[in-house]
């Protein structure tokens, strides 16, 4: 229950410790600037250069993710974008899910989805083999020994 305080009750001084809400606010702006560069670069290379979306297949991704530059680029994209998006969704949950239980469930779901997808995505980037053994030679990147 919300209790209404008597008029002129002095403002509660904030508890000591890290001001997470402030750092979240700063994170949205700092990551936002980086994401403009990272995502515009991602869209330019994947959707604008060459045949755009029609060129994307396993061999295309294999070629990109065998280059350390794109591994770092995609890792930054994954972490920065997912945390930025989840924190933005947290803002909406706080604005619209006024029931305590609903609010809690939605925020736990956001946290769970974020952690699972960051772990999954990071594992995919760093355990990915562009030339998997036994793969169809016509589907892998041209630099693979089995490619034809």
């Amino acid at each position: 229950m919300t209790t209404i305080q008597a008029p002129r009750t002095p403002a509660v001084t904030r508890r000591r410790g890290v001001n997470w809400e402030k750092w979240g606010w700063i994170y949205m702006r700092a990551s936002g600037v980086l994401l403009v560069v990272l995502i515009f670069g991602h869209l330019f290379v994947n959707l604008w250069v060459g045949d755009g979306i029609k060129a994307i297949d396993f061999a295309f991704v294999g070629g990109k993710l065998s280059d350390p530059f794109w591994k770092v680029w995609d890792t930054l994209l994954l972490w920065l974008a997912l945390i930025h998006g989840a924190n933005g969704m947290r803002t909406l949950v706080n604005d619209y899910a006024t029931k305590r239980l609903t609010n809690g469930i939605l925020k736990w779901a956001l946290l769970l989805a974020t952690v699972i997808l960051i772990v999954l995505g990071t594992l995919v980037i760093y355990t990915f083999d562009p030339c998997p053994a036994g793969a169809d030679p016509s589907l892998v990147a041209s630099f693979c020994p089995v490619a034809n």
Partner: peptide, 16 residues
Amino acid sequence: HILDTALIRVTPEAYN
């Protein structure tokens, strides 16, 4: 998009 890209770790056929 993260889930569909994760299919590169399954097989080339699944991703394609």
